[in-house]
């Protein structure tokens, strides 16, 4: 009897499946999908490379700067890089439409380079990465981030000391 009741109810309710690919499938906001990388926020700390479980993330030193490389087909969508990133430069977006032709497989990667610049204070060659926000109070303003980006590590330290730690 119970089963008949359920069968009837299901008939009235209609299908509970999604008609994908003929209609869009429901995707929650937090779903961990394709990796999104924001170069301007990356501090070059390489935490994501160290925690990446399948080894999908790699940093290489090139003549132009520090190259960030991430392979979508190696990624397991665990979200560790997002969790340990100090500036939210890397995150899992909720895009899961990643089927592609075999010919496109080498394009399924993110390759971006943090360039070298000359330090605006001392002229030394330095990496134009975003400053690490850990322990900085009050937090950096967008102007300060741009200012820090163009300094070498020693001059960044000096600028931070001049700024002072405010309670």
């Amino acid at each position: 009897m119970n089963t008949l009741k359920i069968l009837l109810r299901n008939l009235v309710r209609g299908p509970s499946t999604v008609p994908f690919p003929f209609a869009p499938a429901w995707t929650p906001e937090r779903m961990r999908g394709r990796i999104e990388f924001k170069l301007s926020s990356c501090t070059g700390c390489r935490a994501c490379e160290q925690v990446c479980a399948p080894g999908a993330i790699r940093f290489d030193k090139t003549p132009e700067g520090l190259r960030f490389m991430m392979w979508h087909n190696t990624c397991v969508f665990c979200g560790l890089c997002e969790f340990y990133c100090p500036t939210d430069a890397i995150r899992n977006g909720n895009d899961w439409h990643m089927a592609h032709a075999v010919g496109e497989k080498y394009g399924m990667a993110i390759r971006e380079t943090i360039p070298y610049v000359a330090c605006t204070a001392c002229g030394m060659k330095a990496l134009a990465s975003a400053p690490n926000p850990a322990g900085v109070k009050p937090p950096f303003t967008p102007e300060e981030i741009e200012q820090q980006r163009n300094l070498c590590p020693a001059c960044r330290k000096k600028a931070l000391a001049e700024r002072g730690v405010q309670p």
Binding site: N10, P28, R30, V76
Partner: peptide
Amino acid sequence: ESMFMHVMEVRERMQDIKETIFGNRMDIG
């Protein structure tokens, strides 16, 4: 079989919870 489908349909609600709150249907991280 119809009972199997029904239980899996009920379970689907749990899968939706996992996907919405954690971001994955099985490996919730």
